[in-house]
């Protein structure tokens, strides 16, 4: 069943550089599916994520999410529907209230979406932090004093708190070491199996994107240039760009590390 269907999204940033960040982008994501999104730095991935999350307005195009005319929603209707799509930002430092604590940020997400009665919130927030591998002692710490990877994990805990239907993950595991990352990826895959969550998984690490995605879309200069099943696409890339990306992967991530 199609969960998200975006058609003809376009966005040009005004100003002297007039960058066409989205140029007729269409994509769909099924319920319970992970679509990986890769492409060179500056090709428009975060812009697409922000448009889907209603944080930026496209110049053209339409989006249906869960049967709703997503871009037409506003006011109370949007507030009500927002829970369905959550996002983890590429720059988690900027995505928190300056004085927020780790536990407070997660509890707040539970409060806004009225999911857990007030007295159960601290416990629920601590459980979410544990799920992303953070010790509950971190709950009282200001987010600003956490390490980069700890902060990224608080952002993930906060985004899964409202049990969304679609989670947009913008480079959400790119500051995590391999062992912590493995744990977070396992969590994402488990939540998907249990709750039918769908992901738009933006990343630059092809090995990671391949491991978690059902399908992968390749973006270049504001356009999606190819889409296909993850494994098939990477073993038989159609575009020169994807071939070059695969060839530039550092040795240890290759199939045949040159010793």
């Amino acid at each position: 069943m199609t969960l998200l269907d975006a058609r003809g999204l376009a966005k040009t940033y005004p100003g002297e550089r007039r960058i066409r960040a989205l140029d007729d982008v269409s994509l769909s994501i099924a319920a319970g599916e992970t679509l990986g999104l890769i492409g060179p730095s500056g090709c428009g991935k975060s812009t697409l994520a922000r448009v889907l999350a209603r944080l930026a307005t496209p110049d053209a195009g339409s989006v249906r999410l869960d049967g709703l005319d997503w871009l037409a929603l506003s006011g109370a209707g949007l507030r009500h529907a927002r829970r369905r799509l959550q996002m983890v930002f590429q720059d988690p430092a900027a995505a928190f209230h300056p004085r927020a604590t780790a536990g407070g940020a997660v509890a707040d997400a539970l409060r806004i979406h009225r999911l857990v009665p007030r007295r159960d919130r601290p416990e629920a927030a601590a459980a979410l932090l544990r799920q992303v591998g953070l010790s509950p002692d971190l709950a009282r710490r200001p987010v600003a004093t956490l390490s980069g990877g700890q902060r990224q994990r608080v952002a993930i805990a906060r985004a899964i708190a409202p049990r969304p239907r679609l989670l947009v993950l913008d480079e959400a595991v790119s500051a995590l070491d391999a062992s912590v990352r493995a744990r977070v990826l396992d969590l994402l895959v488990r939540l998907q199996a249990e709750l039918g969550l769908a992901y738009l998984f933006i990343g630059h690490d092809l090995a990671v994107v391949r491991a978690v995605s059902h399908r992968i879309a390749v973006m270049d200069a504001g356009q999606i240039i190819e889409t296909g099943p993850a494994e098939a696409l990477l073993s038989d890339p159609g575009s020169p760009l994807l071939r070059r990306l695969i060839a530039a992967v550092p040795a240890l991530h290759r199939k045949d590390p040159p010793v």
Partner: peptide, 19 residues
């Protein structure tokens, strides 16, 4: 452990081919 947890382009995938 850090090296073992590193994914490469031949690692077992964490999801099936279809949702």
């Amino acid at each position: 452990a850090l090296l073992a947890a590193q994914l490469d382009l031949a690692s077992p995938r964490l999801v099936g081919t279809r949702p």
